[in-house]
Nucleic acid binder design. Structure first.
Length: 989
RNA sequence: GCCCGGAUGGCGGAAUCGGCAGACGCGGCGGACUCAAAAUCCGCUGUCCGAGAGGGCGUGCGGGUUCGAGUCCCGCUCCGGGCACCA
């Protein structure tokens, strides 16, 4: 042993970054070698070790899996992963068999674009990125089962994504049974005649249909179908985009290219069939109200009525509108169809009507025909308006705000309640995709109709009397809307709404709705209807780096599902990964896979069903060249984690039931599924809605046992960071900025502070590696959990980290001699104060862990450790009972140091499955309690009383207090409030 | 525009039921140890008045309910998020 010079002597076994790192590496290696976090399945290939776990409760903890970006992680990324790991580790110590794994959502545009630039195959960069991310995550000490970490790009994974697609394609929604059923059941019903093809869109009986007719009919029922639908077409990227990939100003999020609404033939998923169940089953879930609300709003259920209007001069035609306010039918002064509405051509006359047609106008007002109908016949006006509307990019649509445009079709509708002739317009403020694509316009009581009516000089007839406050506030009269500055959209009392059969006058809005609904139903003019904002899901992309569809087309152009035996359909090798791009909005999509001619054209011997007529003998087909959206792989990965190596099924039924069965501890009804799902709120709608939809289809078809995938959802907050700009407004390196007297400087130059996301462009990135080097991973974990509640966003502040690092150092020093590295834990009895604090801490920490309030759990552990410091200072050693308990309680949060301490205290095995300390109730009871004494609500003294002291005893004790007695001296006590265990309050006057 | 969520010391935050506001940590101030510094340990730290004892004020703003309000109610302000012609 050599003498260390006193000047730079550091204790050999001080808990610093170097020691932390060596401890952390050693334990990460040991967990891996000992398979500590392998969660055994009850059966199948991953069942090894299950017997030892059989008595434990299965618990499935899940993170929203990441996209393996080339940029690597910053400290904000793992916040949720640390949270789930703490919870999972706690649950392992409280009797659970915990499944926790991490995979990768690895298909997607960044890898593809990088490939386009470099010519390198996206699989190469994707795999390199995954490897880097796994390294960074391993260093955090996350207790994942490494066997289950699938990537969506694995052929063995996307083979099952394709298999699920086939299930969906080969299914239809039975509205009577309210569930999806195999498509063969539908065919059987048609063939047996129990379902009438003629009544379901075919027009003629099943037996009279030819092969093609049958295929078209059946295809129209499928849950996955090809349709011509208006989509976000981005010629600059050469692909269609999902709504969330389009910015608020109508450009592509990536590349900033203009986006156009174009009808294109695309794959769709019939999520709308599930709208009602997706809405109703939210009630079964333990999600926050705000997320449920966002889903409810997205689904957008509204109830009202469909009402059919006649068309003047067309006895055979009727236009059905949807309205939530049938009580305002008498106020309908015109009608609007979406420009694409199928009836527009049929009702548009050859000539403009010339005669008088309403009280206000003796000829067509100029505004009605506007720029589109000026000097041309109605059909030409309609055509040019349609072109105008279609040519507008989303950008222009946003820029013009809500200025109303439209054109009169020359046709008139007949209001069924009063026979009024009302003009029919087309306007793009009416959307084909919602309701019936047609509205009755009641400008007096609808903001949009009001704006349109003012623009086009249309009558505004009030039929709901506004409340007096509204009228006086606007300074207008109820019965003359000509002076109104805006529509009255609230509820009120109906007026001017009567015909021979029904009168609404005098009824309040709900009663009027009911009365008119009854009358409409009786007259056969309308039916109560529910509509949804939710649209079917656009499911194809013109990209290379995604799952190919297991679909081919024959020369009819109709899709044919490949048999399961043809899976996986692997991505072909191509030399050019880019879709064809253009700046012409009329250019057509051309996916990269279309250029792989050898792959696209394929000769197969498909044994198609007899009714479809394409079976038998080798024939040439063309493959679907679109790929699936990135959401596809993320829709079901939680199921594959359960049984990642299963080649016979996406998950074995017994394994799925073991992990997913929904049994709440208190026995209340649960939807089942993942016990805890943690991720960012940015997936509040789309991912979570799509996954719920797929899960329900799989449930209907008998492939999973629960109606919902995620029983409990927890949205973690974001770690944000300060960024600094210099005088020119250029971002400077945040790490180099110093604070002096409340201002910030880079060197001597003052800089401005901003607050936002952590990112390269703001030059404020802090990486986990930076923190490991300075403090170690346990410190990083502890800091991220200590900063605040897991569901709140908060700023990263590197200077605050020392607090938690000092805690770990102090804990270490309380149990380990910094010079020798030997533990100084003694089998001495702890004093009563210490034991009471210990058990109070255990009790509180358990509660905080259950509620995922890790920040307060850590605060409790700080207090216990600070007390332990006193004990060690006084006695020279830590009592074993305290030392072991605090180590076990720290273990979920800072597992490496805890394992090391546990080991040094003489335990050869990992503490991962050690029972979490339990509070002894004997130490939780308190016999005396200090309560405040208030006089007129202000604390004037404190008394210590027995915990069971009744109000009278409390009051007596309070009066005995010197200060209180002085204040009560000579005063009249009006009232005394004495709450046992809480306070005493004297009200004096 | 509509719908959610939030606002507590210099900073991050705590306060499960209407009952001691500010736990715990950072930062700051003071002290011990040291030749000195670092590290460590101890004390103080909402704010104003006061030498002190003590007192006033205090949870975004204005009202209210209550013996008592950070917490409940009404009306605002600001910040964050979602939706945005959905009839």
């Amino acid at each position: 042993m050599t003498e260390t010079p006193a000047s730079d002597r550091t204790p050999r076994a001080r808990y610093d970054a170097a020691l932390a790192t060596s401890i952390e590496r050693a334990w990460q290696d040991r967990w891996e070698a000992e398979r500590t976090f392998w969660a055994p399945n009850p059966e199948g290939g991953l069942a090894e070790g299950f017997d030892a776990m059989a008595q434990r409760t299965p618990l499935y903890v899940l993170d929203m899996f990441p996209y393996p970006s080339g940029a690597g992680l910053h400290v904000g990324h793992p916040l949720g992963y640390i949270g789930t790991d703490v919870y999972a580790r706690y649950r392992r110590m409280t009797g659970c068999n915990v499944l926790h794994a991490m995979g990768y959502d690895a298909f997607g545009l960044p890898a593809e674009q990088y490939a386009v630039q470099t010519g390198q195959h996206p699989r190469v960069t994707t795999e390199a990125n995954i490897a880097n991310m796994q390294r960074q995550l391993r260093a955090l000490g996350l207790g994942h089962d490494p066997r289950r970490g699938v990537a969506t790009t694995d052929v063995g994974y996307y083979r099952w994504t394709q298999w699920i697609f086939l299930q969906i394609f080969n299914a239809w929604y039975d509205d009577t049974a309210e569930r999806a059923r195999p498509i063969v059941d539908l065919v059987a019903e048609f063939e047996a005649g129990t379902r009438d093809a003629a009544a379901h869109g075919a027009g003629i009986a099943w037996s009279d249909l030819d092969d093609l007719g049958r295929r078209r009919l059946v295809d129209s029922f499928r849950l996955a179908y090809v349709a011509e639908a208006p989509v976000n077409w981005c010629p600059g990227l050469g692909t269609v985009l999902a709504n969330e990939e389009v910015t608020a100003d109508g450009r592509s999020e990536r590349g900033n290219f203009p986006v156009f609404r174009r009808p294109l033939k695309q794959w769709m998923m019939r999520i709308t069939a599930y709208a009602e169940r997706l809405l109703a089953d939210l009630d079964l879930l333990d999600w926050t109200d705000s997320i449920k609300l966002m889903q409810r709003n997205w689904i957008g259920r509204s109830t009202g009525a469909e009402v059919t209007f006649g068309v003047a001069g067309h006895e055979d035609l009727g236009i059905t509108v949807f309205t939530t306010r049938p009580d305002t039918l008498f106020g309908a002064t015109y009608m609007v169809l979406a420009p694409e509405h199928p009836l527009v051509d049929a009702i548009t006359p050859v000539e403009w009507p010339g005669a008088q047609f309403d009280a206000q106008h003796s000829e067509i007002p100029v505004a009605w025909r506007g720029i589109f109908g000026d000097g041309v016949p109605p059909a030409a006006a309609v055509r040019s308006y349609r072109e105008f509307a279609a040519r507008k990019s989303e950008l222009e649509r946003q820029a013009e705000g809500h200025v109303k445009t439209g054109v009169f079709t020359g046709a008139f509708a007949i209001n069924p309640v009063n026979g009024a002739r009302i003009p029919v317009f087309i306007a793009d403020y009416v959307l084909m995709g919602y309701g019936t694509g047609a509205i009755m316009a009641v400008p007096a009581h609808d903001d949009r109709d009001f704006a349109f009516a003012r623009e086009f000089d249309l009558a505004i007839i009030p039929v709901v009397r506004p409340d007096d406050a509204w009228l006086s506030g606007h300074g207008v009269a109820a019965d003359d809307a000509s002076e109104w500055s805006e529509a009255f959209t609230g509820v009120g009392v109906a007026m001017g709404s009567a015909n021979e059969g029904v009168t609404l006058d005098g009824l309040d809005t709900p009663a009027a709705k009911a009365a008119i609904a009854e009358w409409l139903a009786a007259e056969g003019l309308g039916t109560p209807t529910t509509t949804f904002k939710l649209r079917d899901w656009l499911f194809s992309r013109q990209r290379y780096w995604g799952e190919p569809f297991p679909i081919v087309f024959d020369d009819t152009g109709l899709p044919i599902a490949l048999p399961e035996s043809a899976l996986p359909v692997e991505l072909p090798e191509v030399s050019d990964f880019a879709p064809r791009t253009s700046d012409d909005p009329d250019a057509l999509p051309e996916p990269p896979l279309a250029r792989a001619e050898d792959w696209v054209e394929v000769t197969l011997d498909l044994a198609g069903p007899a009714w479809a007529g394409y079976g038998g003998g080798p024939r040439t087909f063309r493959r679907e060249v679109n790929t699936m959206p990135q959401w596809a792989g993320s829709c079901w990965y939680y199921l594959r984690y359960l049984d990642p190596e299963n080649d016979d099924a996406l998950v074995a039924a017994g394994v799925e039931r073991y992990w997913m069965d929904g049994v709440r501890a208190d026995g209340s009804p649960a939807a089942g599924g993942v016990d805890l799902y943690v991720g960012g709120v940015e997936h509040a709608v789309l991912h979570l809605l799509y996954a719920r939809f797929w899960h329900k289809v799989l449930f209907d078809l008998g492939h999973v046992s629960t109606v919902e995938p995620f029983q409990r959802l927890f949205n973690q907050g974001y770690i944000q960071a300060y960024a600094y700009t210099d005088q020119r407004g250029v971002y400077v390196e945040a790490a180099d900025v110093v604070e002096r007297d409340g201002a910030w400087f880079l060197g001597d130059e003052p800089v401005n502070r901003e607050y936002g996301k952590m990112g390269k462009s703001l030059r404020n990135v802090v990486t986990p590696d930076d923190i490991y080097t300075e403090y170690g991973a346990d410190t990083l974990r502890l800091y991220e959990m200590f900063m605040g509640p897991l569901d709140a966003s908060r700023p990263w502040n590197t200077t605050d980290i020392v607090g938690v690092h000092r805690f770990l150092q102090r804990l270490w020093r309380n149990l380990v001699d910094e010079d020798s590295g030997e533990v100084h834990v003694a089998d001495l009895p702890a004093d009563d104060d210490t034991l009471r604090l210990l058990h109070r801490t255990i009790d509180a920490v358990r509660g905080d862990m259950e509620g995922m309030s890790f920040n307060t759990a850590i605060a409790r552990l700080f207090e216990l450790n600070n007390h332990l410091t006193q004990v060690v200072a006084a006695t020279g050693a830590a009592p074993r009972v305290v030392a072991e308990a605090i180590t076990l309680m720290v273990a979920p949060l800072a597992p490496h140091i805890a394992e090391e301490l546990w080991s040094r205290m003489g335990h050869p095995a990992s503490l991962a499955y050690e029972p979490f300390p339990a509070a002894d109730p004997a130490f939780l009871v308190v016999d005396a309690v200090e309560v405040p004494v208030q006089v007129n609500g202000k604390v004037r003294g404190r008394i210590t009383v027995p915990v069971e002291a009744d109000p009278a005893a409390l009051e007596a004790a309070a009066r005995a207090d010197e200060r209180v007695a002085a204040l009560l001296e000579g005063a009249t006590v009006r009232k005394v409030i004495a709450v046992p265990g809480r306070l005493v309050n004297f009200v004096i006057g």
